[in-house]
Structures are given as structure tokens and as C-alpha cells.
């Protein structure tokens, strides 16, 4: 008799752990020909709240790490993605990509982690400055992380889109609560396992699957989220997200993947994507004897 395989339960990724959703509900993820691939967690407001709490708690330690250290952790993510490339590609394929496209997407995902890993100890030199003020003062400006970023991943490319938005946020010391692709969440959830085994501290990245119509309004309005990346929000809902973001003057970020494309390496990955999740701090001190 043929061996029966052990099927994976796709869960959430919150605070470095893999809980099932508090809602106790799931939604079907279907592949080609309407085949049921999995029952993904239908994340709830409570899950989001837990994720934001975990993300907030993680900010101090993550942003306090040395840039070199954060760079090495992102590099480690690339390594683990490389070693699990087959599994991630297979998930993309089951979700509807051709084998060749799935392979290409994974390669790009790995390279994108590597790209941002290398920026960790360089973007502050690109965006920081020493300012020649007209007086006896030493004056400099440094970028600092905004804090907790809410990120809505695009539906497609499900994994590359998510990684392209998370990587610039976390390399800059932010922590993230991300809502994954609703229709293709599988590889995104597996990415949580990559984080868990890459020395990414608990809470730095939190991944919530579910219905965007339920999750996005809450994430956009959450008073302890500092920035909202609405890349994966459909155009008809962008105004609602922006309106909710105004409640606590959130930084609003949006990458137009449909227009620019996710494979233009000059525009879909750049230090300017890091800059969008940074605050500029200027420090003055008198000079004297």
C-alpha cells in the first residue's frame, strides 16, 4: 500500500510562533481547476491585535541591533530561502504559476533578500547628513525606523510581492505585521518558517492570512501602527485605507506593482523603499572649549 502523506496545516505566524487563528475559522485556497489546496487561517481582528502587540514589543531590540547584525540576518533569510527554494516554488506552482515562473520568482525572492541585506549598513550613509549650519553647532541627521509597519501584500506575485515590501521595512529596523495574498497565501505562510529558522527575533515579522476586506480596515486604523503599506489594496479601497491612516497620522506607502512591475530591479528594489519607512532625526550640539 502506498504511503499516505502528512498534509501541512497552514497557520499564522505571530511573535515567532505558529498559532491557528483565534477565530477558529478557515477559508479554502484553491489551485488550478478548482482543486482544494488547503484551508488557510481566516485571521481575525484579535489575531491582528496580537500581532501588532508582538511587533511593538520587538521594535526596541530589533532597531537596537547593529546594522551589521541585521544585514547578516537578512543574508541568513536568503540562505534559508535558497535551501527551501524547491518547496517554495512548488507552493507557487500549486497556486497557479508555471514551473518556470515559480522558479524565477523564487530566484528573485532570494536575490532581493540579498540585495537588502547589503543595504543595512549603507542606507544611513546615503540618507544621513552632516549639516553645515550657520553657527557654532555640530548638526547631523540620521534615519531611524518609523516603528511598526502594516503591510498589505499584493495578490500576485504572492511571494515576491510580499518579500519586496517586507525586506526594505525590516532592514531599516522596523517590525512588520503583514497581511498575505488572500488568494495565494501558501508560500507566504511557509516564509514564516524561513524567518523562524533564520535568527529573525520573534515579533519582527508577523504574517496574517485571511480576507483582506476584514483585516485591512483594522490594520489601517490601528493606533499603534506607524506606517501602512497599501501595495496590495485594490484601487477602489485605497481611499478608505488613507482615511483610516489619518487617525494617528500614519505614514502611507504604496508601491504600484501593476504599473512598474515587480521585475524591474531598478525601481522595485532600491534604498528609496527603505527610506519610505524611515524618520529623519536631526541632532544639534554646540561646539566650544
Amino acid at each position: 500500500m502506498a504511503r499516505i502523506g502528512v498534509k501541512k496545516t497552514y497557520k499564522l505566524f505571530i511573535n515567532g510562533e505558529f498559532p491557528r487563528t483565534e477565530s477558529g475559522r478557515s477559508y479554502p485556497v484553491v489551485g488550478k481547476g478548482g482543486v482544494l489546496l488547503a484551508n488557510a487561517c481566516r485571521g481575525s481582528r484579535k489575531d491582528l491585535r496580537n500581532a501588532v502587540q508582538a511587533a511593538r514589543k520587538a521594535v526596541a531590540a530589533w532597531s537596537g541591533k547593529t546594522a551589521y547584525n541585521r544585514g547578516q540576518i537578512l543574508y541568513r533569510i536568503a540562505e534559508v530561502c535558497e535551501s527551501r527554494a524547491g518547496e517554495l516554488a512548488e507552493e507557487l506552482r500549486r497556486q497557479g504559476s508555471s514551473a518556470a515562473d515559480a522558479r524565477k520568482e523564487i530566484e528573485r525572492v532570494i536575490d532581493r533578500w540579498l540585495y537588502y541585506a547589503g543595504w543595512s549598513d549603507k542606507y544611513p550613509q546615503v540618507f544621513g547628513s552632516v549639516n553645515p549650519v550657520a553657527g557654532p553647532y555640530y548638526n547631523f541627521t540620521v534615519p531611524e525606523p518609523t516603528g511598526v509597519a502594516g503591510i498589505i501584500a499584493p495578490e500576485e506575485p504572492a511571494l515576491l510581492g510580499l518579500v519586496s515590501r517586507i525586506a526594505p521595512a525590516i532592514v531599516g529596523g522596523n517590525t512588520v505585521v503583514a497581511v498575505t495574498s488572500e488568494s495565494r497565501p501558501l508560500a507566504a505562510i511557509t516564509l514564516g518558517e524561513v524567518f523562524e529558522t533564520s535568527d529573525v527575533p520573534a515579533g519582527v515579522v508577523n504574517l496574517i492570512s485571511g480576507l483582506k476586506s476584514e483585516l485591512v480596515p483594522w490594520l489601517a486604523a490601528h493606533m499603534d501602527v506607524n506606517a501602512i503599506d497599501a501595495t496590495g489594496v485594490t484601487p477602489d479601497k485605497l481611499a478608505d485605507v488613507q482615511k483610516a491612516a489619518a487617525e494617528n497620522v500614519k505614514r502611507y506607502v504604496h508601491f504600484d506593482g501593476d504599473e512598474i512591475g515587480w521585475t524591474d530591479d531598478r525601481l522595485s528594489q532600491s534604498p528609496y523603499a527603505i527610506f519610505e519607512f524611515q524618520e529623519m532625526k536631526t541632532v544639534w550640539h554646540p561646539m566650544g572649549m
Binding site: N131, P132, V133, A134, Y137, T141, T282, W284
Partner: peptide, 10 residues
């Protein structure tokens, strides 16, 4: 120091 401003300072 406090309340210092300069065009070169963000």
C-alpha cells in the same frame, strides 16, 4: 541648546 533653526538643518 534649544530652539535653533537653520536652512541646512532638516
Amino acid at each position: 541648546t534649544y530652539n535653533k533653526f537653520d536652512p541646512a538643518s532638516p
